[in-house]
Amino acid sequence: MTRTRGAAIAATTIAGALLLAACGGSSSSDSSSASSDLTGSILIDGSSTVGPATEIAAELFMAQNPGVAVTVAVSGTSGGFEKFCLGETDGNDASRLIKEEEIIKCDEAGITYDNITVANDALTVLVNAAAPVECLTVAQLNAIWGDGSTISTWGEIPDLDVPADFASTPLALYGPGTDSGTFDFFTEAINGEEGSIRIDYTSIGEDDNAAVTAVTGDVGAMGYVPFSFYQEAGDAVKGIAVDGGNGCAEPTAENVQDGSYSPLGRALYVYASGTALQKPETVAFFDFYINNSAQIAEIGGYIGLTPAQVTEQLAKVASLAGQ
């Protein structure tokens, strides 16, 4: 018990030190002395959407803590949870919340956990830059993508004003394959049920770049990709503003952070295990990840955490580590 308490105190101290370092606005090399005596290894597995952010966090963290070896694998959110709930990994990248059957597995193995939000993301509906459309409502998106939809030209989209010469342009739809967390989230948010979607769209599998390429080359094309792909996509495509009932909101960092980019704004998680958080290096890593979310988001094309989220997530880590 005293050991656990000691670890918790150490963790809080480190977290505090990191927070101070981060707030002080010092360059990253200055704060290296704060926790450079940490040693150990951390293994994170899971989603390929969150994995790149964790890789960046790991790299920045190891620059300051050379004694800690952080490795990141990407066997998918589900594949990662399977290992996580057997206690084989210290954390699991997840682009969705843990599912019922996974909760049961974790409980059976006695793994305690919590979902730590490490970044935000905007699922972005992409169209060609030349398409005369700026905003779509959730109802319109549902009419386009919903199960059984027969809309095949832009003119058929309900309540949408498009120039007469554009109305007959064929609507070419590109979406990720059914294994993708992006697919799960989009179908749930737009079509109301996970996995429910019209069957005649072009599946791009796991390669979101393919959607960008397709939309770049076709004025009538539409696809949806994670925010990072939209950011890197260039000027030939544009992200459609989405109206979830409170007016059109463009896919921007501000709109996601204040919640107005709804329902396609989402949080990206790393599930941390209570066992792993008994090790001070793991606590330090998670605190680092949360505190530096702005820098990590900048490098990886994600959207950083809001100050409120940072406080909230740090508290989650501290409480999981202290139990």
Binding site: T54, E55, A58, A69, T71, V72, A73, V74
Partner: peptide, 8 residues
């Protein structure tokens, strides 16, 4: 278990 990020 092959990972995508390992620096050692």
């Amino acid at each position: 278990g092959a990972v995508t990020f390992v620096t050692f």
